[in-house]
Amino acid sequence: MSSASRKARTLRVAALRTAYREELAEGTGVFFSPRAHSCPWCGSARLGGYLHTTDLFQHKPGVFTLDRCHDCGHLFQNPRLNERGLAFYYRDFYDGLGEERLGGVFGGRTASYRSRARSVRPHLPGAAEWLDVGTGHGHFCESARAVLPAVAFDGLDRSDGAELAERAGRVRRGRRGSFPDLAERLPGSYDVVSMFHYLEHCAAPQRELEAARAVLRPGGLLVIDVPDPGSRFARWLGRWWLPWLQPQHLHLAPAANLRRRLAESGFTVLAEEHTEAHDPVDLLAAVWVALDAVAPREDLPWLSSPPGAWRRALRSAVFLAGVPLLVAATVLDRLAVGPLAGRLRLANAYRLIARREADDGARTPPA
């Protein structure tokens, strides 16, 4: 980062500090809904605490708990963030202060995006209209066109990212708003709906699946990528496992649960993929998050005051000392874990490709 960029960021942080201080004056309790006493997936009351953690990414104040259902295995944030809480913890992550940094990360994942498109290609006979839900700035759609040139991609996002993606030419049309609301207005409008690492962010996943069924034409495809809470890394790395992503991830459904729910919602699962959905970053991310946790904070507007020069120097020293660990973790992720992730049950995500059946229940022949 250039000196001019650092100065501009310092001024932005200072300008935001007062507003954050006022919002935090009531404490973090106002950001949560009442605690749930039954599983939101199956209704069981047999719940147990699974993980307690803090915000390891933005370092905003608050403590977050994931509960596990002893009957179906579903994991969910409990108590869950309310709308005010979601707005608070998302602010300056994907937009604002975090937009430039996250934009660079998402923009550099072309190979991963094309791999997603190749997974769908065998089930897609030709030209199609595709809606990417939770599209961000539309980078997946832009990359997927190279694999699926006959597909017209639209993007939907709650932020202004989808509109920015349309202006940048990454999507045919960028739609802003909630998916259930869009599905009510445009029933039967698409041949494919994708939800790449979107469903785990949703307060009511079943509503999103119903919206997908509504917006798809009979025989259309639903593609879902979500974190896999059954990954061995989830147990081995504990709170340092990147896909916990607290406080943003509200629900983490085991693959068997999501398969059953899709069948109940009028879909037939055509493929389940683990190795193909895996992103080889678990060890690297764990080391980075751990270093970031022990290093003094960078200047952030939700902190009471900016760090001094010695704290900035100490932060730089911690990350410099951690470079060998970061390099070793990267090598292990890509060369040792990546090729065997599915076989060793280390995959951090899974992908389901499902077909929407006709409303009368008749099975649509496979493409």
Rank of each mutant, 00 (worst) to 15 (best):
S231Y: 07
E273L: 15
A165H: 00
E26W: 00
T135N: 09
A349R: 12
P187E: 03
V30M: 03
W302Y: 12
H59T: 02
D132W: 11
V192S: 01
A336T: 08
G266Y: 05
S305P: 04
L326T: 12
E208P: 03
D132T: 07
F196K: 10
A214M: 08
A286P: 09
A256C: 07
R172M: 04
C69Y: 01
V323Q: 08
A127M: 07
L47M: 07
L325C: 11
L221E: 05
K7Q: 14
V281F: 11
R351E: 00
A211R: 02
P149H: 04
R207S: 15
R261F: 06
L291W: 11
I224N: 01
S143D: 15
H197G: 11
G134S: 06
G27Y: 03
V281I: 14
E22Y: 06
Q248W: 14
R91T: 12
G108I: 09
D282W: 02
S38D: 09
L209I: 15
M1G: 15
R315V: 13
C72F: 02
P61C: 08
L237S: 06
F31R: 07
A328L: 14
L262F: 09
P61W: 13
P205W: 02
P365A: 09
R145H: 13
S194N: 09
R170A: 00
R12L: 12
R260I: 09
V147Q: 12
L222S: 00
R363A: 12
A256E: 15
D333V: 08
A211G: 10
V30P: 01
E166R: 10
